[in-house]
Design a protein around this nucleic acid. Structure first.
Length: 801
DNA sequence: AGCACGCCGACT
DNA sequence: GTCGGCGTGCTC
């Protein structure tokens, strides 16, 4: 007898294992590994979704009382063997549930929704309730249909067996359907004779059918593009010359004319890199390359040519990029090179569009996938090369469960497919650079910009020495430089480094700072909505006129937001046309592209924005980049804050002077002597790497030590604190004595969304007991978890806040 | 997660 | 004596 092993959608520690089910008659041949099924789980008639991860042959007597699978949700598997295997590995590695991993691999549209209904099964004496059941015997069980007291009555009715609760699993994914026609004619000449000579529409249709006798033709396409009338189609249908069917419709979010983009001639360095990577592709070597190339050195061309090699070998390619650099510029470049076999997945697509792209990959139609983090799970077969561009980018780490790093998944898949993985960056993460240094990764370098262009001139303005700084925002030097560019009809990019920084409201008399009632951070001023907002929980309130503490009127803003800078700019340089780009102005779909497009067309002189402008933009007319506050990210309680700041400054500097004009970069700072600022000025990655490695070595941080963050939170501060101490004590006793355990300490932002957070940092080099000990922690803290405690384990966290 | 079971205090 | 709170264990 065949049984199916199913991972059920019940994300708990105790159910994180496959359950066996009988396969119902008629499904034995159809059911495949990787399909989603609906299964009964627990008592009552609870139904949950699950994934078939295995199908096994068993003795009928060995598994006597198995429940039976209810139904399948798929006709074809939605996950292949590789991804099922990957989900298991990922769950183990990130201390998460396998079901969470399986679900993150699918596009959102395919995630099941559960609906709860109440069903009447006996006579109901309560009038209010029985009235409701007159209309229908199944009523959704929610607050819309039943108020508080009624819910209580329902509970009693259920006890008395008068009603029961029914669960339904609903599949959200709706394939868009459209009508198509399929030819039914065998004898075309004979048919033609039956059509009147002046019935041109029908003759046209016949001709089209004759050319495409086999495949379905989309009706709207026939009517709109080929000028065939609906009535002709109707009369053909009547005569049984064709039949109508419904076919899946693919939305095309990036519908654009595909221009042909030819491979470019390579520089010597590029050519060497391509050759080396191609050798790995050809021999199916699972090598990991670190491709370090300064901005403008032509990394993308290396990617495109190696992808071409994989395609030539009838293999597929996966290219990951940070979300923010998925600009149409970049996407079009890949699409122009490889045409319709490219699928693009990013957050700008609607749920349906993502689903369509996913299906194109799953069916094998798309053979090159370009996408952000989640695209690393693209269901490609036979991968020939995996590329991770800007590999140091922090958006590659997912910061909720499963807390995976895209780089780790990419490398895992590279091993599985025996194909090379290329990590590219101008400023590699220290971890990757160190591995390249040790020979774990193969090191490829593109030290020169193509066309012998030199890097832009970078100068530093010491803000402590500035006399007139206009609220500490603009130095005279920067203002003068901006003014000059505008006179020359050139453009300027200004970046406000907002990391660890925001504008807050403070009372000048008593020093009271307006804080979020749910979180331990100050509220941020938003001029557009005239409110104070919390960036963590979304709390919002009107801007107060009086200090809530001492009722003084002398309450004012501190700090600098993009809005304030914009206002300043208008006052100081009234002629400048400024466009602002930050989370507020890019919230709407497509607004990101719109702003960039308008700036590119020179409708504006100055692009003012936050971090999001640092990457991937390429505007030839930009000759000046100004960084307003280089150092605000430097003092954060995070050992990577120097690395981040260096990356950011280097990236944004690369925005200046990309075409024939030379660029200039002005960095304003209050710490001009800081090594990060100095080395960013010289854009000397190697020196920064050496220096930072020394510091990391002294402090026992990555890459010398691995880190794990355990965070424990609860609405009840005492509960969180005491559990945190218990966990830390347990770990201290069970782990290797070379492993360092820091904490527990309240987190830098100790309270968020009313929860109190404590964290423990584990630093280790090699600890065989670690995985097991942490799993044990999860296991024994279950009791507290029931009482509202949450415990999260984050391997290699990118944030310590 | 969602449910049943069982143990204990409070109440008709 | 039993109703209902909560702590605990189980789900193929």
């Amino acid at each position: 007898m065949k049984i199916a092993k199913v991972i059920v959608d019940v994300p708990t520690m105790q159910t994180n294992t496959p359950y066996s089910y009988r396969i119902p008659n008629g499904l034995e041949t159809q059911l495949k590994r990787g399909m989603r099924v609906v299964v009964p789980f627990g008592n009552g008639n609870r139904k949950v979704e699950g994934f078939v991860v295995d199908i096994e042959e068993t003795d009928a007597k060995q598994s006597p009382q198995l429940k039976e699978i209810d139904r399948t949700m798929d006709l074809v598997p939605v996950l292949n063997d590789e991804l099922i295997k990957l989900s298991k590995w990922l769950a183990d590695k990130t201390y998460s549930f396998q079901i969470s991993c399986l679900l993150t691999m699918l596009p959102n549209a395919m995630k099941a929704k559960y609906a709860t209904y109440v069903k009447a099964i006996g006579p109901i004496d309560d009038e209010d309730i029985s009235k409701k059941f007159k209309a229908s015997d199944m009523i959704p069980f929610d607050s819309e249909h039943f108020d508080g007291p009624e819910m209580g009555k329902l509970a009693k009715l259920r006890k008395a067996n008068k009603i029961k609760v029914v669960y339904k699993v609903q599949n959200e994914a709706k394939k868009k359907q459209e009508t198509a026609v399929v030819n039914q004619i065998n004898d075309f000449d004979g048919t033609q004779k039956q059509i009147r000579k002046n019935a041109t529409a029908q003759l046209n249709l016949l001709e089209v059918l004759q050319k495409n006798p086999k495949q379905p033709l989309v009706q709207s396409h026939l009517v709109k593009d080929l000028g065939i009338s609906n009535s002709a189609i109707k009369s053909f249908e009547k005569k049984n010359w064709l039949k109508k069917i419904q076919v899946e419709k693919y939305r095309d979010p990036y519908k654009h004319e595909i221009k042909v983009d030819q491979p470019k001639k390579l520089t010597k360095d590029q050519e060497d890199a391509v050759k080396e990577i191609n050798r790995s592709i050809d021999s199916h070597q699972n090598d990991t390359y670190l491709l370090e190339g300064v901005t403008g050195s032509g990394k993308t061309e290396v990617y495109l040519q190696t992808i071409q090699r994989a395609l030539d070998l009838k293999e597929t390619a996966l290219m990951l990029v940070p979300e923010i650099s998925l600009t149409p510029q970049m996407v079009n470049r890949v699409k122009n090179r490889f045409g319709n076999q490219v699928a693009v997945i990013h957050s700008g697509l609607s749920t349906g569009e993502k689903y369509d792209e996913w299906r194109r990959i799953n069916s094998g139609d798309a053979r090159v996938v370009v996408g952000a983090r989640s695209a690393v799970f693209a269901p490609l077969d036979n991968i020939g090369i995996i590329i991770l561009d800007e590999e140091h980018d922090t958006s590659y780490k997912q910061d909720d469960n499963p807390r995976y790093h895209t780089r780790d998944v990419a490398i895992w898949r590279g091993k599985y497919h025996h194909c090379p993985v290329v990590l590219g960056s101008a400023t590699p993460s220290l971890e990757s650079r160190a591995r390249a240094g040790k020979g774990v990764y193969k090191f490829l370098r593109l030290p020169k910009r193509i066309n012998q262009k030199h890097l832009p001139e970078v100068s530093i303005v010491d803000m402590t020495q500035e006399e007139e700084t206009h609220d500490g925002i603009f130095s005279g030097e920067l203002l003068k430089a901006i003014d000059q560019r505008i006179d020359k009809n050139e453009q300027v990019v200004l970046m406000l480094n907002r990391r660890g920084f925001s504008s807050f409201l403070m009372c000048r008399d008593c020093g009271y700072v307006l804080k979020c009632p749910n979180c331990d951070i100050s509220l941020t001023l938003h001029m557009d909505s005239h409110t104070m907002k919390c960036h963590y929980c979304g709390f919002e309130e009107p801007i107060p006129k009086y200090c809530p503490h001492c009722h003084s009127k002398n309450i004012r803003y501190f700090g600098t937001g993009t809005e304030k800078v914009e206002k300043q700019l208008h006052e100081l340089l009234p002629k400048a046309r400024v466009v602002r780009m930050d989370v507020d102005t890019t919230r709407k779909k497509g607004s990101h592209e719109k702003i960039l497009h308008e700036f590119g067309d020179h409708h504006f002189d100055i692009l003012l924005g936050t971090q999001m402008i640092a990457k991937g933009l390429d505007f030839p007319n930009v000759t000046l980049v100004g960084v307003l506050n280089a150092d605000t990210g430097l003092d954060l309680p995070d050992f990577r804050s120097s690395e981040r700041t260096f990356d950011l400054l280097t990236q944004v500097s690369g925005r200046a002077g990309r075409a024939d004009k030379d660029g200039e970069v002005i960095i304003q700072t209050y710490n001009p002597e800081n090594y990060v600022i100095q080395l960013a000025k010289h854009q000397d990655y190697e020196a920064f790497y050496q220096k930072e490695m020394q510091l990391r070595h002294l402090a026992d941080y990555s890459p010398y030590f691995f880190t794990i963050k355990v965070s424990i939170s609860s609405l009840n501060e005492k509960q969180a604190a005491s559990e945190a101490y218990d966990v830390a004590n347990y770990l201290k006793g069970s782990l290797n004595n070379k492993t360092i355990i820091l904490g527990p300490t309240p987190r830098p932002i100790a309270r968020m969304k009313r929860r109190y957070y404590f964290q423990i940092i584990i630093k280790y080099k090699r600890d065989l007991k670690l995985n097991q000990s942490l799993k044990h922690v999860l296991q024994v803290s279950q009791k507290e978890v029931r009482k509202g405690l949450r415990i999260g384990i984050d391997p290699e966290p990118v944030s310590f806040m």
